[in-house]
Design a protein around this nucleic acid. Structure first.
Lengths: 335, 335
DNA sequence: TTGTATGCGTTATCAT
DNA sequence: ATGATAACGCATACAA
């Protein structure tokens, strides 16, 4: 019942702790005979090396931090899962930290990760803590931004090409003949929202249409703001015939809003950044920009590993831009 | 750029490392004057204590492991979030480990946690690794089972009262006059599935109905198995007029299956263990057993903390059974 | 091929 | 009230 350390194992196997360590780490010379005995003893005693002591000695925590805005958001959790799978194979584990979109919680998460001496940090930021983040970079911990850019923080980044995708999406609506298109934007503070807004605007401009501000609504990426947007658009003198929504939560809310107002959910044509997995259940003219969490995770993992393993590349900044594609629902074809 | 340790801070503040430590941990005596100087220096240098060294010295990792079957499952992630929030306040952090329903991955996760010297483990098990789990208990690490019971493993547990809830659900269908009720079960290996099946059977028995095996379908908690179930029930000589589904993924699949067979999604009355958040979007007579992840997390956190803090309670076994309630959708009232 | 001894960054004991 | 120092469990330089 007393704590089982490398020492007890050494004694039990009749060798020194150094030999145990050599077997464990598969380095240095050790006779076949000794290795056998050591492995047998480890197995018999169910010895598990203490990674805390190991980390301290080797100055290598093996941890990578991932700060994300919402643990229950399937998009981020798919990224999380893929990231974990990829990095576990390389001997790293991931700390998942939930910022809940609050800069204060984000700050706590980042400080926690620093105290845990993580070897790199992946951050889908709230937009705050810019100074802390710069200090982290200056301190030498590789930091990669995910999904969202941060103003005034040059850093490695992996994100989706929000502007292009949004432009395509709105272009799609315009080319189908819609003349009044509502744009349901995300919150001003988050880079993805700004980029998606820019893309939408660009499409309108390219097609020579004016962007009337009354057809633009600013939500906050939440379901409720989508609901409010539906009410808002419906009450306009001339409601839009189609709407581009900057994220799936708002799209969901928008559908709820239509329903609350006694309208069928296919009352307006809808294009959403990010799909809704129940969309196939009904005929509702929903076209979605399909995001690719696995590809994002893969790119992020590559970048993280490279920065950890090539400290000489510390100054470099790389930006990986993935292009999500527009997925037109069958029901939309004949809309 | 050289590593910043307590030593450098001590030098910079003109005190010994012991004093720094005392300030950091708020124990022992330290003059107001010294404390001020130390705090100022820490702030100025942006010193962050190395928790790895601290953990080694104090023999206290501060970590709690949570092994769950699917990182992208919102039910478990809501539990995860609530758990994290509750435990962070107590000075603990949580390792989220994804077993992906595979015993092999679960084994790796458990071993990882042991090597990290977590102070307790919360486990929503795959059903495998029974011996390892018993060894963990014997080794003195508190282990609490979540959501799922394990055969032959007496342990603290927090779960929902699956049997009672399932019984109520089927009873509800019978009392509405349905005479042929299909039961869509989960996989045999998972305790929740067995309990829900038992509850459903009990309802039938109580109402004096025979449980014909052809009205029972065994899925595996996945969407696809729900789809297959729909096809199966529809092809029976006398299809059921209502179905009880043992989890929400299968319920979703079942709806998809109805659609694929050219039927409206309200073709059959449905009661689901676990809700579907888009249910309110349409009129489809879906009644759901509403699970309560926050309450589950709270109960689990209490139990974990108690076992960590009261080692003398090591032999005790406590089972917390939460009772989810049946939530009848408005559309079902007039079905 | 193996063992001895030192040190990783921190806390805690013991002097002072 | 403060400082010197041993110890936590392990990996590794060096000696043998």
């Amino acid at each position: 019942m007393t704590k089982l350390t490398i020492k007890e194992v050494a004694k039990a196997a009749g060798v020194s702790t150094a030999t145990i360590s050599r077997v464990l780490n598969e380095n240095g010379y050790v006779s076949e005979e000794a290795r056998r005995r050591v492995l047998e003893t480890i197995e018999r005693l169910h010895y598990k090396p203490n990674t805390i002591a190991r980390s301290l000695k080797q100055d290598r925590s093996g941890g990578i931090g991932f700060v994300l805005p919402d643990l229950t958001n399937p998009y981020f959790m798919r990224i999380a899962r893929a990231l974990h799978n990829r990095l576990a194979g390389e001997g790293y584990y991931v700390f998942f930290m939930d910022s809940d979109e609050e800069p204060e919680k984000e700050r706590e998460a980042l400080n926690f990760l620093l105290e845990k001496r993580v070897e790199a940090i992946l951050l889908a930021g709230t937009g705050g803590n810019l100074e802390l983040i710069r200090r982290i970079q200056a301190g030498g911990t590789p930091l990669v931004l995910l999904d969202r850019q941060l103003p005034g923080v040059p850093a490695d980044a992996v994100m989706e090409d929000n502007e292009t995708a949004a432009e395509e999406a709105v272009m799609y609506l315009l080319d189908k003949g819609h003349r009044t298109v509502g744009v349901l934007n995300g919150p001003a503070g988050i880079s993805t929202a700004a980029e998606r807004a820019r893309g939408a605007l660009k499409a309108l401009t390219v097609r020579g249409m004016e962007a009337h501000t009354e057809y633009s609504y600013y939500g906050d990426y939440t379901r409720n703001s989508g609901k409010r947007a539906a009410k808002y658009f419906l009450e306009l003198p001339v409601p839009p015939t189609a709407v581009f929504s900057a994220n799936n939560e708002m799209t969901f809310g928008f559908l709820l809003g239509l329903k609350e107002n006694g309208l069928p959910i296919d009352h307006m044509e809808l294009v959403s950044f990010g799909g809704l997995d129940f969309a196939s259940l009904f005929r509702h003219r929903l076209t979605a920009i399909r995001q690719e969490p696995d590809a994002v995770a893969e790119a992020a993992a590559e970048l993280l590993l490279r920065r950890i393993r090539e400290p000489e590349s510390a100054g470099k900044r790389e930006k990986r831009l993935l292009v999500p594609r527009l997925e037109v629902s069958p029901a939309s074809e004949d809309g």
